[in-house]
Amino acid sequence: MRALRVALIASSRYPVNQPFAGGLEAHVWHLAAALRNAGHSVTLFAGPGSDPELDCELIDVRPAPLSTAARTDISMPAEHFMQEHHAYLDLMLRLSRNYADSFDVIHNHSLHYLPVAMTSTLNTPVLTTLHTPPTPWLESAIAAGSSPGRFAAVSNFTAEAWKHAAGDVDVVHNGVDTDHWRQGPGGQRLIWFGRIVPEKGAHHAIAAARAAGMPLVLAGPISDHAYFSEWIEPELGNSVDYLGHLVTDDLVTAVGNSAVALVTPQWDEPYGLVVAESLACGTPVAAYGRGGIPEILTPDCGRLVPADDVRALTAAIGEARQLDRASARARALSHCSQRRMVDRYIELYDEMACSVTTSSRRAS
């Protein structure tokens, strides 16, 4: 397969760099690195502070050049909205002018509406990966765009959720680098990791660990300080410890040294990257069966329980810790590997690039 010139558009809100703010940033970082390692040319459009080792172009989020009269107008939205709007408008105009013939395909991972709404202004085919449930701004962009591009979703669940707006959507499950996320020996404790926000439900993991009589460690960025102060911090100590926001190497060690990973979403997870990462470390998972998680977890590597059922989660801990760690690792290798994901994306890129070449030949 020929080498391709790929542009990746990331979210502007957080840098694509370690320690990652969330699964989206980790996903884009690993995808960029894997594509480069496979011999493709990759340019990453990302927010300030992104990894300098990647070939990055800045999504320049800064105060929009507005007059005092415009800022004081009754229709003026929140400042952060205008900053993001201006940054993505500038990016899409650059892609249509300065980079008109620079890429074979543009792969959009941002959650902003403008890359979709302005796809028809580009000569380059655009693939947008849907990482979230339907949002009003993105649905509107799809409906308004005369040619909004092609869409992929991170799970069958997410593809089905978007079908009414985006039609038939390709499914490319997120993958993890199973060379980096290596199998660990396990241990006598539980682990919960991810962004510390209400919708991730770390307080449920604490309640289940206490009920099971097992120590628990938490890891991840404190993205909602009020939630952390009210629900998490008072529970620390007495066999519950917060390890902080870890870089990947330290997180791999922490997960690999744990008996079971707890996954407690309070919303329908579009995919469930922490499940895949845990399995790659050989760590079985006890999880609420929401969103895309049931597509990853099978009975030989974890247990699914009804959402918000702490008692069922507690019972699942005892069952999950008896599971074979090699089976958890095998599931990650067969279903959740980065290689599998990247190969599928390259197939889509090549198909889209060839389609444009064929159309150009017909037009001439």
Rank of each mutant, 00 (worst) to 15 (best):
residue 5 R to A: 13
residue 5 R to C: 09
residue 6 V to G: 12
residue 10 A to C: 11
residue 11 S to N: 14
residue 14 Y to P: 00
residue 15 P to C: 06
residue 16 V to L: 05
residue 17 N to H: 15
residue 17 N to I: 01
residue 17 N to K: 12
residue 19 P to Q: 11
residue 22 G to A: 07
residue 23 G to W: 08
residue 25 E to M: 07
residue 25 E to A: 05
residue 25 E to L: 09
residue 28 V to R: 00
residue 31 L to H: 11
residue 32 A to Q: 06
residue 34 A to E: 10
residue 34 A to C: 09
residue 36 R to V: 05
residue 37 N to Q: 15
residue 40 H to E: 05
residue 43 T to L: 06
residue 45 F to R: 10
residue 45 F to Y: 15
residue 46 A to D: 02
residue 48 P to W: 01
residue 54 L to N: 00
residue 55 D to S: 14
residue 58 L to F: 07
residue 60 D to M: 06
residue 65 P to I: 01
residue 68 T to Q: 10
residue 74 I to K: 07
residue 78 A to S: 12
residue 84 E to I: 01
residue 85 H to Y: 15
residue 87 A to C: 04
residue 88 Y to F: 15
residue 94 R to A: 12
residue 95 L to P: 05
residue 96 S to V: 01
residue 99 Y to M: 11
residue 100 A to K: 14
residue 103 F to D: 12
residue 104 D to L: 11
residue 108 N to S: 09
residue 108 N to T: 07
residue 112 H to W: 06
residue 116 V to T: 15
residue 116 V to F: 04
residue 119 T to C: 14
residue 120 S to P: 04
residue 124 T to C: 14
residue 133 P to L: 04
residue 133 P to Q: 10
residue 134 P to Y: 00
residue 134 P to E: 01
residue 136 P to A: 07
residue 148 P to I: 01
residue 150 R to A: 11
residue 157 F to V: 02
residue 160 E to W: 02
residue 163 K to V: 00
residue 164 H to N: 10
residue 165 A to R: 10
residue 166 A to S: 01
residue 167 G to Y: 11
residue 168 D to P: 08
residue 177 D to E: 12
residue 178 T to C: 15
residue 180 H to M: 05
residue 182 R to L: 02
residue 184 G to D: 10
residue 184 G to V: 09
residue 184 G to W: 03
residue 185 P to Q: 09
residue 188 Q to M: 04
residue 191 I to N: 10
residue 192 W to S: 12
residue 195 R to I: 06
residue 200 K to P: 01
residue 201 G to A: 11
residue 205 A to Y: 08
residue 214 M to R: 15
residue 214 M to Q: 15
residue 215 P to R: 14
residue 219 A to I: 05
residue 220 G to H: 13
residue 222 I to N: 08
residue 224 D to H: 08
residue 229 S to F: 00
residue 229 S to A: 15
residue 230 E to V: 00
residue 230 E to G: 00
residue 233 E to A: 13
residue 233 E to P: 00
residue 238 N to C: 10
residue 242 Y to R: 09
residue 247 V to Y: 11
residue 247 V to M: 11
residue 247 V to A: 14
residue 252 V to P: 01
residue 254 A to F: 11
residue 258 S to N: 07
residue 260 V to H: 13
residue 264 T to F: 02
residue 264 T to R: 13
residue 273 L to M: 14
residue 273 L to P: 02
residue 274 V to G: 10
residue 280 A to C: 06
residue 283 T to E: 09
residue 283 T to C: 03
residue 283 T to D: 08
residue 284 P to F: 10
residue 287 A to P: 01
residue 288 Y to G: 03
residue 289 G to F: 10
residue 289 G to M: 09
residue 293 I to P: 11
residue 295 E to G: 06
residue 295 E to V: 11
residue 296 I to W: 09
residue 297 L to S: 12
residue 298 T to V: 09
residue 299 P to I: 08
residue 300 D to M: 02
residue 300 D to K: 04
residue 300 D to H: 15
residue 301 C to L: 02
residue 302 G to M: 03
residue 305 V to N: 13
residue 305 V to C: 10
residue 306 P to L: 03
residue 312 A to D: 12
residue 316 A to W: 08
residue 320 A to K: 04
residue 324 D to P: 03
residue 324 D to C: 04
residue 325 R to S: 07
residue 325 R to E: 06
residue 328 A to K: 03
residue 328 A to P: 00
residue 330 A to K: 15
residue 333 L to S: 05
residue 339 R to D: 15
residue 347 E to Q: 15
residue 354 C to D: 15
residue 355 S to D: 13
residue 357 T to V: 14
residue 357 T to L: 13
residue 362 R to Q: 05
